[in-house]
């Protein structure tokens, strides 16, 4: 048992799995307890039969003290006693309701004409992310590589990038609507603004970590400057850049929610806001969970592919079963794999 809390030591594989499952099971358990054990919270009463209280109706939620007071008054006046059961506020639906909503949200047609189905909203959000991230990467990755490799480009670019980086992307919302219209373009622009400036700095920092001994070795093998960039710096940084992209993609999702309320509200954010207006909070939870599933899913798939694409980082052959296990055991395995020890002596 002591071994489980040793500092910076690996856990036994079985424990990795147990804790990985527990990481999800414990919050779920807490949610179940709050939802299904009335003694824990349940500050409200859901009216079953209104009895002699005129303003009660079946399904209405009232505070417990109000319910007690009204039922006492009804009994004193000789009217029928109302009945009801303890309940949680409407913004905390029980897990089974949310679980059902995960399915029914997809099968329920939109309430109003012109509104979108859930899957349409989702697809719109995903498209916004893909466009935004692709545009940002198309500029940010090459520029970051240049900045990390050449002091010239770094000096010319990074001070300004650092300056813009501190401006919150949503601050550009009104401006981007004015320039790009009210539909999809300003939303993509917000994601680009939110991601690009961080991306340039993250990429250049990763590229800067290339082992100088490898560059010197390549030079003594006759490599030109161009060749150093293309055949040493780029291949050396690719696995780390790939990981950076995984993390930055997570940031892009954060900006998505901000971007989607700009101009004509759209995508998954519109769905969430509409459902909250209808007080269908189980659908709100379902939509939020779906974003989580999409995020975790893409990250795990990208991590799995990363180990395939860069076998030199992790020479053991990976199999599908390990992928399934690792879903619950380790995240970001590429970061954790041992890198080449550089044992350069100080001259």
């Amino acid at each position: 048992m002591r071994d489980l809390f040793a500092i910076r030591k690996e856990l036994p594989p079985a424990w990795n799995r147990i804790l990985g499952v527990a990481a999800f099971a414990l919050p779920l358990l807490a949610w179940c307890v709050v939802s299904y054990v009335p003694a824990v919270w349940h500050p409200l009463v859901k009216i079953d039969k209104p009895g002699g209280v005129s303003w009660f109706s079946p399904g209405l939620l009232v505070d417990k003290p109000v319910f007690r007071e009204e039922s006492a008054r009804a009994v004193a006046a000789g009217r029928a006693r109302p009945t009801g059961e303890p309940a949680n506020p409407i913004f905390l639906p029980a897990p089974d309701k949310v679980a059902r909503a995960l399915y029914t949200a997809f099968t329920t047609p939109p309430r109003l004409q012109g509104e979108q189905w859930l899957y349409q909203s989702l697809w719109e959000s995903i498209k916004t992310i893909i466009y935004g991230f692709a545009i940002s990467s198309a500029i940010g990755v090459p520029l970051g590589v240049l900045c990390g490799s050449y002091a010239f480009w770094s000096r010319l670019t990074e001070p300004f990038v650092d300056f813009v980086r501190y401006m919150p992307a949503p601050a550009f919302g009104a401006l981007s609507v004015a320039v790009l219209g009210i539909y999809d373009a300003p939303k993509v622009a917000i994601i680009v603004i939110g991601t690009l400036f961080q991306q340039i700095l993250v990429v250049s920092n990763t590229v800067r970590k290339v082992d100088p001994a490898l560059l010197e070795a390549a030079q003594t093998l006759g490599a030109s400057r161009r060749s150093l960039l293309l055949h040493v710096i780029v291949p050396w940084s690719l696995p780390d850049l790939y990981n950076d992209m995984r993390i930055l993609l997570g940031w892009a999702w954060t900006y998505l929610i901000v971007a989607e309320v700009i101009g004509v509200s759209s995508g998954i954010t519109f769905f969430i806001n509409q459902q909250a207006k209808y007080r269908m909070f189980e659908n709100v939870y379902a939509a939020i969970l779906i974003i989580g599933f999409i995020g975790l899913g893409t990250d795990q798939v990208l991590g799995f592919l990363g180990r395939r694409i860069f076998p030199w980082k992790n020479p053991r052959p990976s199999r599908f079963r390990r992928f399934m296990l690792e879903l619950f055991t380790t995240a970001r395995t590429i970061d954790a794999s041992p890198s080449e020890p550089s044992e350069r002596s100080a001259a």
């Binding site: 001994a213 070795a217 040493v232 050396w236 860069f310 030199w312 002596s345």
Partner: peptide
């Protein structure tokens, strides 16, 4: 390329 070099640290290209 007329002067090859072997370093003390391991400088093989890991990729």
């Amino acid at each position: 390329a007329d002067r090859g070099m072997v370093f003390q640290g391991y400088t093989l290209f890991p990729w």
